[in-house]
């Protein structure tokens, strides 16, 4: 085996399938979309080189910054909801009755396709027939809001199913990490007289710190490029009140027929996501590795 691995050609050969796939499916389109961003192009006819005009237009476009703000809100919201997921996982991992069943239940939304989830929540939110307003009216709310029509609440109304959709995924990650903590460490803490809360905060959380950091990055990046539910539920409407970066990019490229500008927005989105990722890594990096 060592002999094979010392041959650089063999390494290249074994790497090539993955490299080829990543290159063709990710890096080439990435470079191409940056390149299309330099063009005035409706996606159908001739391209015309216009330099950085699309990028400058993007930076001056109020609607783009609105969508950036909405995406940032979503990132903030998903990061905060990690606390909720973590709390649920801590409970699940502490050997309560029915933990296995509960874990499977939390995972169900992740098994549904985004379109199905969107359709489900569109029905929940229906202002006259939806179950949510039905309940609100039963408990005495006179004029329950039209969730997806009110520009002030539509964004949050969509955040809720997004948080629900990803609960299973993060709970699964946290649960696995918590289960990996050696029983002996917890046993020792217990003998020293630590309360369950102290064990959770002082022993368990520091030990899965790395995992938590990874999930923060996943949540932020995932939120910044989020698209599915918003596209199906409101398509960015009403009047842009729920537009996020990805839905705005799609709208420009495919409905407004401005492929060049859409590509430029896509590229700006990539840059924003990269900066956010670097920033989080920087803010949370530390050399000390915790060990007990």
């Amino acid at each position: 085996m060592n002999k094979v691995m010392s041959n650089k050609w063999m390494i290249l050969l074994y790497m090539s399938p993955a490299l080829l796939l990543v290159g063709v499916l990710i890096f080439i389109p990435l470079i191409l979309s940056g390149y299309y961003g330099l063009m005035e192009w409706d996606g159908i006819g001739e391209m015309k080189f216009i330099g950085l005009e699309n990028y400058i237009r993007g930076l001056q476009d109020g609607m783009f910054w609105t969508s950036v703000w909405h995406s940032t809100l979503l990132a903030l919201f998903s990061t905060l909801s990690l606390i909720l997921y973590l709390a649920v996982s801590l409970v699940l991992a502490s050997k309560i009755k029915g933990a296995g069943l509960l874990r499977k239940i939390y995972l169900i939304p992740m098994l549904l396709s985004s379109v199905a989830i969107a359709q489900l929540w569109i029905k929940v939110y229906n202002p006259s027939n939806g179950i949510l307003n039905w309940i609100l009216m039963r408990v005495g709310v006179e004029n329950p809001p039209s969730w997806l029509a009110d520009p002030n609440i539509v964004l949050y109304a969509i955040f809720l199913p997004i948080v629900w959709q990803y609960a299973g995924f993060y709970i699964l990650i946290y649960y696995a990490a918590l289960k990996n903590i050696p029983e002996t460490v917890i046993e020792a803490a217990r003998i020293d007289g630590a309360s369950p809360l102290q064990i959770a905060l002082k022993i368990k959380l520091p030990l899965i710190r790395e995992v938590i950091l990874v999930t923060v990055v996943l949540a932020v990046v995932g939120s910044l490029k989020y698209f599915d539910l918003i596209y199906v539920m409101t398509n960015g409407g009403p009047n842009g009140a729920s537009e996020v970066m990805a839905s705005y990019m799609y709208k420009l490229a495919f409905s407004v027929n401005d492929f060049g500008y859409g590509s430029a927005i896509g590229f700006l989105m990539l840059i924003i996501t990269l900066i956010a990722t670097l920033f989080i890594r920087k803010a949370t990096s530390s050399d000390e590795k915790l060990q007990y």
């Binding site: 569109i122 006259s128 039209s146």
Partner: peptide
């Protein structure tokens, strides 16, 4: 117009008409 019209799809509006709502 029915409540929340700005957030409903045409399909949803059509089904309220067709369900005699």
């Amino acid at each position: 117009f029915m409540q929340g019209a700005n957030g409903l799809s045409d399909q949803e509006a059509k089904s309220s008409f067709m369900n005699e709502q």
